[in-house]
Computed example of a mutant assay.
Amino acid sequence: MTAAYSRHWRTMLAVNAAVMLGVFLHKLTLPPYIPYIHLLVDFHHGFIKRALIGAIVGLFTTKVPVWLVFAIAGSVWLITFALFVQLFRRTFGLNSAQLPLFVFTAGSPFVFKNFLFTLGHFDVYGCLGAIILMLVPAGSLGYVLLAALTSAVLVLIHHIHLLMYVPTIAAIVVLRYYLPRRTTRLDMAVGGAALIGLGALFLTAQFLGTMPLPEADFTAYLRTRMADPTRTELLQFAYVWYQPLTKEVQDTWARLPSNLLGVPVYALLLWLHAPLWRTFRDLIGALEEQRHRQIVIAALVVITLAYLVMFAMVFDYSRWISSWVVCMVLMLHAVKTLPTTKPVALIDAGDRTTTILGWIVTAIPRVGIIRPF
């Protein structure tokens, strides 16, 4: 890499940091409707979906200020970013040659920038859980149990994690634990039991986790947990805990025509990451065993199908496509742990087109929540 191109990629890191700071400051000006109410809902009235975070907050305070949304979510974002840097350093290294790949992953508008814009939502927790499972040793059956526990916590935070990040976590477990060793019956039994248990937990949360009291009583209880109970506008999404799955699907399909208008934008954003996708393709192609390639491709298909189901059920399309890219980045790291027949060249830092794409990706601040930007 020439000194000129090296300066380009290092400057991109600084610009990315400035853009992330700008996204964070902008987020502070927006009312945290959904994130705040998640800090208020707990298990006071029995098992309720989407209540784990609020229950944990309730262990430490009886009155929840609005600023706590940003304090908690910001801390989780910082921890996740720090662990991602550690993961990237361990998987690829973090010298000049790896800077372009770092820019196209950590600096992508799909990834940490969008986590900042969705601050307070639950998406980043799935990424955090997957990164932890990439960093800890995978040498014993305890690793499978840890993955199952992590997935269960994610489902209790929000049951949609079963589609959003649990398939990626399962793929990481397969690649890191099951593929490198001869699988025993106990291994298969524990893995199968974990999948069945997570499925049962999801169904329980989805269909039995609705609020058992009238909505007026529910919002009255939430006001007792608010530091400022006069801000009733922050409770306008309380209906979410009463809305059946059929209504969510109906709303999603009603919005489908307008949401599909964003597909060309998503396609363009994905194309801007072409150097990242080429690296991923080459890494899969270089795997030593054909069986490993087949399993990796099957895992990517399953992860993508789970997101397609989410697209049919819930209309936060910008969040879903962003989290899908995050899952692809996590799978890139997982695939890199498998043996290959030859070294795989990373993104060419000296290529002019790649540098232009890197600058465009760097300049885009985020993708959004429902519609692009």
Rank of each mutant, 00 (worst) to 15 (best):
L13M: 15
M188Y: 04
Q294M: 10
V296N: 06
P372A: 09
V361K: 00
P343C: 08
A106V: 03
A138W: 08
V144S: 09
S323N: 14
S75L: 15
V124R: 01
S140P: 05
L39H: 10
D251R: 15
D123T: 06
G142K: 09
G74N: 05
L39I: 03
H8Y: 11
D348E: 12
I196H: 02
V361M: 07
A189N: 06
I370A: 13
G107A: 05
M331Q: 02
F122M: 13
P257W: 04
R319V: 13
T91D: 01
I169W: 00
I297K: 12
F24A: 14
W271E: 02
F117T: 00
R291N: 07
T224Y: 05
W9S: 08
Q86F: 05
F60S: 08
I295W: 00
A267C: 12
L245F: 15
Q250N: 09
R185K: 12
W67H: 12
G142R: 14
V249G: 00
L195C: 13
K49F: 09
Q243T: 15
P257E: 04
G126A: 08
S151Y: 01
P257H: 03
R185T: 13
E233D: 15
I37K: 01
L83K: 01
L235G: 10
A306Y: 00
P343D: 06
K247T: 15
Y242R: 05
L222Y: 07
V66F: 05
W320C: 06
W253T: 13
P212M: 10
V66Q: 10
I360L: 14
A205Q: 15
A274D: 08
R278L: 13
A152T: 06
F104P: 02
L116S: 04
L269E: 10
W324S: 08
T224L: 09
L213M: 14
G93D: 03
H333G: 11
K27W: 00
W271A: 15
F60E: 04
F117R: 03
F311K: 07
L283A: 10
T184K: 04
L149G: 13
A349D: 12
H161F: 11
L357G: 06
I160L: 15
T219C: 03
V69K: 05
A306G: 12
Q250W: 06
L116K: 01
P32S: 09
A312C: 10
F84Y: 15
L59D: 04
L235W: 07
Y266D: 06
